[in-house]
Design a protein around this nucleic acid. Structure first.
Lengths: 149, 149
DNA sequence: TATTGTTATACTCTATAACTATA
DNA sequence: TATAGTTATAGAGTATAACAATA
């Protein structure tokens, strides 16, 4: 079986597409003082009623826990999240969105979504859904495996 | 209309999937002394009968020309490509794969492809094709636009 | 005047190791 | 002994600006 040329290779196309959409998202988020990684932490924290531990954040995002520390530091400095002691485990700390964090997230989420959507404009709504579902299955099957060390 | 939670967001899923496949590709390429960016330059050079100018490489790959210089430097140091003067334009230099470059690329391409494919194993062949076609349309529509400066 | 390649610089992202306090 | 968080460091990727040679 013949291998595809670079420009028809899924890995290459994933990298290019991800770069394009991440750049658009970062541009859209710049007005809120956020970048995609900080935004993703804030977004997860805001959607979890009681917040998440940093370990949970690292697991979901596929990041090393040491990176999460820095991202939460920045968000906390900006007053968008805070660290609460975790009842029942004095090692852990729950990352919770502040009211200001939720307020900022409201606009940021909309802007980021629109920015990404504009880069996907070549695809119909139906096709964007298909893309999302295919990617979600890849992440769920492969993503959770090699997170730890 | 309601916005999706982070884990159902196409931008987030693209970033995660791209990270997963790029990591797999880098692991697969490590034995050849290559990383994905160098590999992509080598791959394009090898597939173009007379090579490509660095400007063309930058355009196709969505990179800044200054980044291409460094990538070609590394490949040239490793003896995988060489810079030929471009007949008809003394400013430009054509990047051409050496025999050794083509030989290395043969194995590297196979390994990288298998590594990425393994991360996509949750999708059928048919679905992987669909994914590739959707991504290709996004790159073609949005990718060529804001490359220059 | 515009384009090709180049050098330089700064910032972000990624990967790893080692340490502390708790469990 | 394992786990949650933290600190530190190095390497890779990304983004810009400026310059020489040539068109």
């Amino acid at each position: 079986m013949d291998l595809p040329a670079l420009t028809d290779d899924v890995g290459y196309l994933l990298s290019r597409t991800s770069g394009i959409t991440a750049r658009a998202a970062n541009t859209a988020l710049a007005g809120y003082g956020l970048r995609v990684r900080q935004y993703s932490v804030l977004s997860l924290a805001a959607d979890a009623p009681d917040g998440l531990s940093q370990r949970e954040l690292a697991g979901v995002l596929g990041l090393d826990p040491s990176q999460v520390v820095l991202l939460v530091d920045e968000l906390a400095d900006a007053g968008l999240v805070l660290r609460r002691p975790c009842p029942g485990d004095r090692r852990a700390r729950l990352v919770v969105a502040t009211d200001e964090g939720r307020r900022v997230l409201g606009g940021a989420r909309r802007q980021a979504h629109d920015g990404v959507r504009h880069q996907l404009r070549a695809l119909s709504d139906r096709e964007q859904e298909t893309l999302r579902d295919l990617l979600a299955r890849v992440v769920r099957s492969a993503g959770g495996v090699s997170v730890g060390r």
